[in-house]
Design a protein around this nucleic acid. Structure first.
Lengths: 147, 147
DNA sequence: TATTGTTATACTCTATAACTATA
DNA sequence: TATAGTTATAGAGTATAACAATA
């Protein structure tokens, strides 16, 4: 008896849970995207941060963290690493805050990044009816939006 | 200008990505469930493992890992911890495999666990139309099922 | 007083490599 | 040869606590 037949013989008690399906779908997406951007030297969280900075030039670390739920304590080394790699630059807005902006290299990286994300999204929805994707996004948003 | 108005002033470039919505919805669910079962001394992965063992008495570590995608190397300390806490017991099935089964205490814990998960699921879907939940589960399953 | 940025630290989950023992 | 179990180790992501400097 090989592995595959053993798996099929098992009962899978988690399949019907929405929480479990969310976890599996999310980690599948995360792994796929991580692989697609690995050659850019970026993690998923770093990539998300770059997109937020691009959309909001001059945004501070703290504001980014509030927008996409990254703790201040974790934003500090993340921003420092992006600065060190020349992808973003920091300009003082007052005595304690720094406005973050993409460098030219950062903008080039984001252009590549957007292409990789588009392929990631296409991969995710290739088994879904296109007309239902927008509703799916809205349903997922309703799950966590107000909290 | 306070924090909330600052957040509203920012552009959120990730909102329309299915991958991002999956990540946020999944991590919201995970955090909610983790909180609900913390008093049982269980993590989400430990809880998942207990449910698989309950549904498949005598299952081996490796088979559990294949079913819910946990690496053998990570199953070992996980199973050892559940045994040490008296929630499962191991009986040799051959010279190298051990069949895992819930102890009586493990069964009592799973009974409580099921109630907590039910509340977690109810929380997740409280903003959704009930008739659409089943389809949502199926759509999520389609995203990762074949890989 | 509240906020920004920072450092230190720890936990969860996941991943690979390497090893022993058994099928 | 392949599989089961184990150990060591590392990388992501996330969490809290505490601190200095500034608003």
């Amino acid at each position: 008896m090989n592995q595959r037949s053993k798996i099929r013989d098992l009962v899978h008690p988690l399949q019907s849970f929405l929480g479990y399906q969310l976890r599996r779908a999310s980690s599948f997406m995360q792994a796929d995207l991580a692989e697609r951007i690995a050659d850019l030297g970026l993690t998923v969280v770093e990539a998300s941060t770059l997109l937020v900075i691009e959309a909001n030039p001059g945004v501070t670390q703290s504001a980014i963290g509030r927008l996409i739920s990254i703790k201040r304590a974790n934003m500090a080394p993340l921003a420092a690493s992006l600065i060190e790699r020349g992808l973003i630059s920091a300009a003082p807005v007052d005595g304690r805050s720094q406005g973050l902006t993409l460098t030219e290299e950062g903008e080039r990286t984001v252009d590549l990044l957007r292409q990789r994300i588009a392929k990631n999204e296409a991969r995710l929805i290739r088994n879904l009816d296109v007309s239902e994707v927008e509703r799916l996004v809205e349903q997922l948003n309703q799950i966590w939006r107000e909290h």
